[in-house]
Structures are given as structure tokens and as C-alpha cells.
Design a protein around this nucleic acid. Sequence first.
DNA 1: CCATGAAATGAGAGTAACTATCAAAACAGG
DNA 2: CCTGTTTTGATAGTTACTCTCATTTCATGG
Lengths: 220, 220
Amino acid sequence: MTRMTAAQSPYSPADRPRLGLRERKKIKTREAIRAATYALVKEQGYDATTIEQIAERAEVSPSTVFRYFPTKEDIVLTDEYDPVMLAELRARPEDEPWMDSVRHVMRRTLDLSDREDPEVLRLRAHLGVQVPAIRSRYFESMTETGRLLREALAERTGRDPESLEVRVSAMALIGGMMEVSMYWAENGFEGELRDLMERALDVMEHGLGPENPSGPRHRP
Amino acid sequence: MTRMTAAQSPYSPADRPRLGLRERKKIKTREAIRAATYALVKEQGYDATTIEQIAERAEVSPSTVFRYFPTKEDIVLTDEYDPVMLAELRARPEDEPWMDSVRHVMRRTLDLSDREDPEVLRLRAHLGVQVPAIRSRYFESMTETGRLLREALAERTGRDPESLEVRVSAMALIGGMMEVSMYWAENGFEGELRDLMERALDVMEHGLGPENPSGPRHRP
DNA sequence: CCATGAAATGAGAGTAACTATCAAAACAGG
DNA sequence: CCTGTTTTGATAGTTACTCTCATTTCATGG
């Protein structure tokens, strides 16, 4: 008997009837590869999972896996939130302070991701801590997000998006956000990522400040 | 005839007579591998350079190359400045503002690196822009620097180095510094890296500010 | 319903980074 | 010079990833 790939994805396949059969199959294949990868990684860990195993469980050939994702890390890390973030950032009122916009958009994006698949963010953060190759690639994908950030920041402040100042501002934000993800994973996913992000943005906006009443104290 | 590996390193081999022959040979091998890699990468590019070629030019076996460096990227990116930075950071007066200490130490470290080998920083930044694998690994090595930064920052401010706030502050700095390096390389290494770093630290300390008189203007 | 062109897939061979193992060579110390 | 320890080299193996080409699968017009 043929085993189902068991895609308990939030979308039912009939949701998109306007797409041709070809397009629908491509989407299904993509999701099957990702689902197979997530499952195998949870079972055996990232390094122990080979492309062959992924292909087998997703019921495609190894060639096809590479046709859909350029690297093994990308299977885990790829998503489509960047355009969403940029759109939301542009939709914010012109006169809103930049960091407030970022706060707002980050919260919305995190909520969205959490609603679609609450496991994914955790798995990524976890692998980002455990697997160097993933961490590296994670950073790489964050720099792409950084490029969007500097576009939006440049529009908002009327500066050149390629200026050193804008680029550094955007990338410093990205660095801080990356650290939030690592912190979250290293501390057993305690607390809401959304709240940690908020605290991080506060620090990046105002600096550490002389004292932080709610923060932890130096170890004794 | 046997070709010399031509290590025009600032240290002459006789500089360290207190080390045994074994230790001296190891240092020489390490430098030979690095020199061979730099030369080959300049000639052919990073991807086209194989470990075998590196081994051949350095006159060692491929096994030995991997014994000295865990990955190909590490041959290009490894250095020993982190401990120096930490020491200098700790040597700064207790009451100096944190960002001033960072500014000071960064300038000293960049100068030191520039004096030892002015090409290396450029090559790294260049490859960081061109080669994704290098860029990723570059980031990875920066996060290690970030760990030092948060130690120093925690000591200075009396906070827990593992607190979210300290970690985010340190990593945001790293993100900004990384971007400086990329900016420098993408703009043909125009201007002194030291000066760009200074501008970056200003932005990270005070934010973009309402106007930047000396900065470039939005493209027309 | 079928024929034709285009797109997607699978199979195979190949490259290169990296690992593990083990025997030979180079050194250190007596 | 002899002995024990380090360091090296050779070899075989794994796996991510690339390239090529024949086969299959879908789209479309008659």
C-alpha cells in the first residue's frame, strides 16, 4: 500500500481552484518536502537527516528536492514573510516614529507566523542554536530581511537606502532580532517571543539605560 | 627543485626561539596553508580553489589542511584578535562610557590588523560580499566576538551577561559592524574603514537623528 | 478524444568538502 | 642511539550538490 504523506497543513488543497493542476502540484510537492524534512529532523536531528531520506518520505526523487530548494538549510528556513513585512511597514502612517512601526509590524508578523504554524518558529530557533550551518544560513536570510528594512527606513526618513547610516541602522536591528531568537531557544522557549522582541526593541531604541527595574540582576 | 612557500609574514621564524621545533613547524604550516589559500583565491576566486590545490601549494597533504582548519571558510576567516579586543576593553577605565570604550578598542584593533596585514581585511570583506558561504561563516565568527562584547558590557554595567538586554545590545553592535564591512567592500574600499566604523558607532549610539548634514542625500 | 508542444520529473554520473582510520615518519628526551 | 609520543599522509567512505538527458505529465488546439 502507498502511505500518505499526511500533510495536515492549514490549507485544504481545494482552497485554490483557480490555479492549474501543475501549479497546485508544485505547491503540494513543496509542502511535502518541507513536512518530510520537519518530521525527520524532529525524529533524528538535522545532521542525521539526509536528502535521500527526505526525498523518500516526500515521495519524490532527490533531484526534485534540489529543484525546489537550493540547499538543505533552505528547506528548513525558507518562508514568505518578507514581502508581507515590507507591505505592512509601508502601510503604517508616515508620521509614526520608525521604531514604533517596527514594533507594530514585528508583532503582527510574529502573530501571523504563530497562527499559521506555531512549531516552525521554535524549530528554526532551536536549530539555529544547535546547528552551525543552520545558524549561518539563518543569518544570511536575516540580511535579506535587512535589505527590506533599509528600504522602508529610507522611505520613512528621506535618506538614501544605500547610505552607511541607514544600512547600519537596519542591520543593527537585524542583529538584535537574531539574538532574541537565540535567547528564546536557549532558554527553553520560556515567555512569548513577542514580548522578548518588544524588550529587545526597547533596548535598541533607548540603549541599556542606567537601570532596568524588571530585568534580571547580575549573578551573585 | 622545491619551491619556497614564500611566507613574507611580519614574524621572522627566528623570533621565537623558546618554542620547540615541533611548535615552530606547526606555526609555519598554519601560515603556509593560509598564504597558499590567499594566493590561490586571489588568482582564481574562492569557489574555484579546491582543498587539494591549497594542500599542494602549501606542500602538505589534504588531511593536514583539515587538521589545521575545520572548514575551507575558516582558512580565510580565522584570526586571533578576539582575546586582544577583550583585554583592551577590560583595560579601559571603569567610568568611561561604554560606547566610547568600544570606539577606542575598535579603532585600535583595526589599526593593529591593518599594520600586520593590510590585505587581509580587504580580502575578507570582499569575499564576505561575493561568496555566500563566506558571508555566513563571517557572521558566525562575529557572534563569537559578540559573546566577548557581552562579557565586557556586563562587567561594565553590572548586569547579567546572559540577560536579554545585554545580549541584544552586544549583538546589535555586531550586526552594525558587519554591515560596515560589507559597505566598505561594496563601495570599492573607499575611505578608511576606521572612519566608517566611527560613523556606524555614532548612528548606533544616537540613532539616525533628524538630520545628518555630512551624510548623502536621498537619490533624486 | 487525441496529437503536439512545454514543463516537470527521475535516473545516472560526477565533483568536492569533510570524516575516520591506520600505518609511516618526525620529533623529544633519556 | 633508542623509545614513546606527535604529527603526518594515504586511503576509503559519506553526503551535499551539479549537470545532463531520457521519460513522464500536464496544457492546449483541433
